[in-house]
Amino acid sequence: MGARKRLRAENNKEAKKQVSFASLRNVPTSPRKMRLVADMIRGKEVNTALDMLKFSSKEASRRVEKLLLSAIANWKEKNEGVRMEDANLYVKSINVDSARILKRLRPAPQGRAHRIRKRSNHVTIYIDSNVDNQQEIKS
Rank of each mutant, 00 (worst) to 15 (best):
D39P: 00
F21E: 06
S61M: 11
L50C: 04
Q18M: 12
Q18I: 10
H114T: 11
V96T: 09
H114I: 12
R117G: 00
L53E: 03
K44E: 08
L7I: 02
K54F: 01
R32K: 14
K44F: 03
P31V: 08
E59M: 07
N88S: 13
A87C: 09
L7C: 02
A87I: 09
L67N: 08
K58P: 05
S120G: 04
V19T: 11
W75F: 11
G81D: 13
V91Y: 01
S57W: 04
S70R: 06
A71D: 00
K5C: 04
S23Q: 13
R63M: 09
R25N: 07
D86A: 15
A99G: 15
H122N: 15
L69P: 03
H122F: 04
D39G: 14
R117Q: 07
W75I: 08
K54W: 01
R119L: 08
E65L: 10
L36E: 06
E10K: 14
A38H: 05
Q134V: 13
K13C: 02
S57T: 09
P31Q: 06
V46E: 00
L53A: 10
R112Q: 13
A87V: 09
S56I: 06
K5Q: 09
P109F: 04
M40G: 00
S61R: 11
S70A: 13
T29V: 02
S139C: 02
V82T: 14
I127L: 02
L67Q: 06
K33N: 10
N74I: 05
N12S: 10
L89T: 12
G111H: 08
K138N: 02
M84S: 13
G111E: 08
K44N: 06
S20N: 04
K66P: 01
N79D: 04
Q18Y: 04
R100K: 12
S93T: 15
D39H: 13
S129T: 15
L24T: 03
I101W: 00
P28V: 07
A108Y: 03
I137V: 15
G81M: 09
R32S: 08
P109R: 12
